[in-house]
Design a protein around this nucleic acid. Structure first.
Lengths: 146, 146
DNA sequence: AGCAATTCAATTGTGCACAATATGATTGTG
DNA sequence: CACAATCATATTGTGCACAATTGAATTGCT
């Protein structure tokens, strides 16, 4: 891209950022019909994925894993609590720390969520090699941005 | 992905969607320091890219190009108008249509924006081949999601 | 011409993202 | 043991995204 004339570099079709932005919006939208019956938004689903992998995690740990800050996560986790999927409690050892734990309903949702990746894979219908290459390239990009 | 056990498929590290989401957030954030001096957010910058390529475009045309709806674009373009970068006017031939045109200040901003893609390319520091492959893969993904 | 269907934008309401700041708990240092 | 610095989360304010609805202009059909 650095060998383009500046005016050419400003064309929408020359941007990497735009397909990235559009693809992210499109994928979030693609999840909606499968997550709505579970009562989850896409960012809420990501938080649940973290909790299903390891319950009893602090807000900060969730944030570092998902690269989201407290301004995003505090209200999001409160909504998960209002939906009865998680409990929020201060850590006994360190009162600054908020520990997020699954409720029974939150654990039960794991079973119902197992169809989601399969439904999305079916909708994408992307060859596994393309899928893995794209994932690796995106992870590389994220690493370059710190 | 379809050959994974469901529980495995629900691991965050197996998701394509998550690096896509995280990369999109990270790229938007990476633009911020270069766009803020121009008085633009990243979505506003995308709208300006469309207008710099062809001025006097309807809101619907901008929306189809950027895959954004009127609920997003109506207030965004009003903010661009408030910033003095565009004019909003109803089409003479069809009063339903809102035509968005650059002001003098909006055209002048084009020159100042030419550094932006170069600054971002420098920050990414990604080999052109990787850049192009990732862009092609993302466009392919967008096409699969309609 | 009349009128239902369509189209384009605006509005309303919910839920992110994130910068900036605030608040309270903990730690480190003299 | 004060007490400044740090740390974890919460709050405030701005700006997206998008579903759902509305309203007005236009088109199409008979």
């Amino acid at each position: 891209m650095s060998d383009l004339q500046p005016a050419e570099a400003l064309k929408l079709d020359r941007q990497l950022c735009f397909p990235l932005y559009a693809a992210s919006n499109a994928v979030t939208k693609a999840y909606r019909p499968y997550l709505a019956p579970l009562g989850l938004t896409y960012p809420q689903y990501l938080v649940m994925l973290v909790l299903w992998e390891g319950d009893g995690v602090s807000l900060g740990q969730i944030g570092r894993r998902l690269k989201l800050d407290s301004g995003t996560l505090t209200p999001l986790v409160k909504r998960l609590e209002a939906a009865g999927l998680v409990k929020r409690a201060r850590s006994r050892e360190d009162e600054r720390v908020l520990v997020v734990e699954l409720t029974e309903a939150g654990r039960d949702l794991h079973a119902r969520a197992q169809a989601v990746p399969l439904q999305l894979a079916a909708k994408l219908n992307m060859p596994p090699a393309d899928f893995e290459r794209l994932k690796a390239d995106l992870e590389n990009l994220i690493a370059r941005l710190g």
